[in-house]
Design a protein around this nucleic acid. Sequence first.
DNA 1: TTGTAAGCGTTATCAG
DNA 2: CTGATAACGCTTACAA
Lengths: 337, 337
Amino acid sequence: MVSIKDIAKQAGVSISTVSYALNGSSKVTSETTAKVLAIAKELNYMPNAAARTLKTRETKIVGVFLTDFSGAFYGDLLHGMKEILSTKGYDMIVCSGKHSHRMLPERMIDGAIILDQTFGSEELIRYADRGHKLVVLDRELTHPNVNQVLLDNKAGAMLATEYLIEQGHRTLYAVTGPRGSYDSKQRLQAVVQAVDRTTDVTLTVIEGDFNKKAGERAAAKIMADTDGGSLSSAVFCFNDEMAIGMFNYLAEHHPDVRIGEQIHIVGFDNIELAAYTQPRLTTIDYSERKWGALAAEQLIKLIHGEHVDHERVYVTLRIGNSVGMAAADAVQKRLNA
Amino acid sequence: MVSIKDIAKQAGVSISTVSYALNGSSKVTSETTAKVLAIAKELNYMPNAAARTLKTRETKIVGVFLTDFSGAFYGDLLHGMKEILSTKGYDMIVCSGKHSHRMLPERMIDGAIILDQTFGSEELIRYADRGHKLVVLDRELTHPNVNQVLLDNKAGAMLATEYLIEQGHRTLYAVTGPRGSYDSKQRLQAVVQAVDRTTDVTLTVIEGDFNKKAGERAAAKIMADTDGGSLSSAVFCFNDEMAIGMFNYLAEHHPDVRIGEQIHIVGFDNIELAAYTQPRLTTIDYSERKWGALAAEQLIKLIHGEHVDHERVYVTLRIGNSVGMAAADAVQKRLNA
DNA sequence: TTGTAAGCGTTATCAG
DNA sequence: CTGATAACGCTTACAA
């Protein structure tokens, strides 16, 4: 391996001069710098990250941790992050799996963005206590070294639930995420709150896990409850993936039940697939890209020692065709016409 | 930062004893080891990756480089890799963007899997010459430090083209990937070969770029060519994304043209979305997971200095409903019935 | 079984 | 402006 020592020897200068020259310091004449640079190139010199990091105690890399790489791999989210990070001179690596957590305490990264159930909150607090900078996207965590950039789950769930109620639905189902999910808890809380404001609405909560299969299971249960769809129902799936599972199940096992007529479905996330369902899924939309960009900005500020307040990502209702008016209301409307 | 020095002081032993103890060497009594471990835990000791790497010259991390993070395309691929790597004691990081290339020459990773157009082949060869271990998934590259794990593009394109011809189509279109793409070149070559075997087939090549937009543009061009779909045509899009762009364009601008009747479409990749198109897209299928697993295995062998031969990932034709028989053949069949 | 010491490739502090 | 030199935290001969 060719090191600055080799360059120094070749150039007939000391290693410190080489180091200065390579880092573009003004302490060296432009001639010496030029010579050093030329020799460096000639020798095919490449700096050694480990050595530099050992000395400077920073890597200029931030880590993004995801629960897994499956499904919608958060493309736009990562895009948004990378964009910001690269303008700030940082590189980004994406990691997944409990084993990779070591990157943080072993100081291979200068900070981390967490969207990863496999991190326990106590674990994160330990890291924060050690001085590591974190931005969390999937939980509440109060610590001087941690910043939160969370989805406005409550607003989203409120929008979805109110929309269903406005459309005249009174038999509501909520299909949740996994038990530990912060997002799911928030959403459920808002749903309950919205339902409590209306007297004649009944809400049934079905535990899901954010995967398609859970949507299928929930659909089966609802079909059983509603006499194969002859009693109308309205379902708020806490993410689009489960909503799509529900679509799939219905298409396969109850081809006669029409979504948007006998059963009404709202999702959350507005993933790409949502635009291709038949009928188009009504869902909660937000900009993944902005979310990522915001998280990256906050992390950089934290790393630079600036103070930052927690941030929120706003959401909107994206109306499709998977929700229609409740039967009675539809009749009413026809009569009025 | 607490280092082995601090532990040594606390334990009243030397730093080398600490190092041995931490690494579970049998050169130290179990008592000393126990004491050291206890103190390490008490002091909240964490090894410093940079220091270890500087000394051992390995990081136990491999990098996976992707052109970008868009689409859900690489989920299973990454999964397949991670599975293998973690059983071999390696961590995996996913990188994207020209800037992150430095991870390799600066030795922050022990090897890399490349599926990334932003790497030039000369660049990769330079790295390989320096001794870095690589597995390439998107090009041919012959070098002792490089292994190829490529899709069987020719077989896939052959399957697709032959299928179209078998269905009686004689006016074929091929929508390619970007000019530099190895996969695209391979596929085109096979298409031409298949077409050349049949006398009365006309092939028109439309340059695309693997994105949805290109599919839309190609659809517009084909509609213009075929008098708004009144002349039947069969299209082989070199990936599903473009095929879906084509679906979208037709749905919007030519709702009367029926896919699988007036226009026939085959894709490549069998992405998740392909199962949700109306009608179901006929496409070329392969296991992303196996592809990833294979690539990871090859890389580990390369890192361990074992010899490996290039590998191929096999593909199959996944028949959907986006291709029907050519009009004349369909008439023929009706007559026969 | 444990300690001493060299060295991995940098950066950065001092003198000159 | 340039050169010695001391870290950074760890591994690993070699010595005791």
